[in-house]
């Protein structure tokens, strides 16, 4: 019998920081891409224990706060479970029309935190990230430098930067370079 394979995340060892901002890799999380017609939203929300939000650029959290559902498009959600739970199984029980695809390993994330977090992202993200335009809980697919990311604002000074696995070096490299600039 061979031993069970271990997971190796691409951001292992990637960390950077200054007095006003830190960049740390997010721990492994399970993730689900959900596509669904309107009638499936409620049953899927129930099955997953987190409301699939219906307003653009918003997210919702489960009661224990470990599971987040992000509105990405009018019929598209990204569900992130920081406890790493199986998200496919609960969806399989939902009969209403939808598509669930496990993307736990497609995406990885960096956590950008601190007073300078917003400024660090503004080095490469053309969206308005002010608290008024992008409040706590806001989320969006957008661009950071030359790659696509999904941003979630966890609190006023903390962003989760989700991106595809192979872009890890770029995203980390970009943010590490951006935070050298002391202006916030």
């Amino acid at each position: 019998m061979v031993e069970t394979a271990a997971m190796i995340l691409p951001h292992e060892g990637n960390a950077a920081g200054t007095g006003v901002v830190t960049i740390t890799p997010a721990a492994f999380a399970s993730r689900l891409s959900i596509r669904a017609r309107a009638e499936a939203v409620a049953p899927l929300s129930r099955a997953l224990g987190v409301k699939l939000p219906d307003a653009p650029k918003t997210s919702a959290k489960s009661r224990n706060g470990k599971r987040t559902a992000l509105w990405l498009g009018p019929d598209e959600w990204l569900v992130i479970d920081e406890a790493g739970a199986d998200l496919m199984a609960p969806c399989a029980k939902v009969k209403q029309l939808h598509a669930a695809v496990d993307i736990s390993h497609r995406n990885v994330a960096l956590i950008v935190s601190g007073k300078g977090a917003e400024a660090a992202l503004k080095a490469g993200c053309p969206q308005n990230l002010s608290l008024e335009a992008f409040p706590v809980g806001a989320c969006s697919r957008t661009m950071l430098g030359k790659v696509e990311v999904v941003l979630v604002r966890d609190d006023a000074e903390t962003f989760r930067v989700e991106h595809w696995r192979s872009f890890s070096d770029y995203v980390f490299g970009f943010l590490a370079e951006a935070i050298r600039d002391p202006v916030i």
């Binding site: 080095a123 430098g145 030359k146 890890s168 070096d169 490299g173 370079e177």
Partner: peptide, 14 residues
């Protein structure tokens, strides 16, 4: 920032 390594992402596989 788009110089050197950050000119264009170099995508690496597992």
């Amino acid at each position: 920032h788009s110089r050197g390594k950050l000119f264009d992402p170099a995508r690496k596989t597992f």
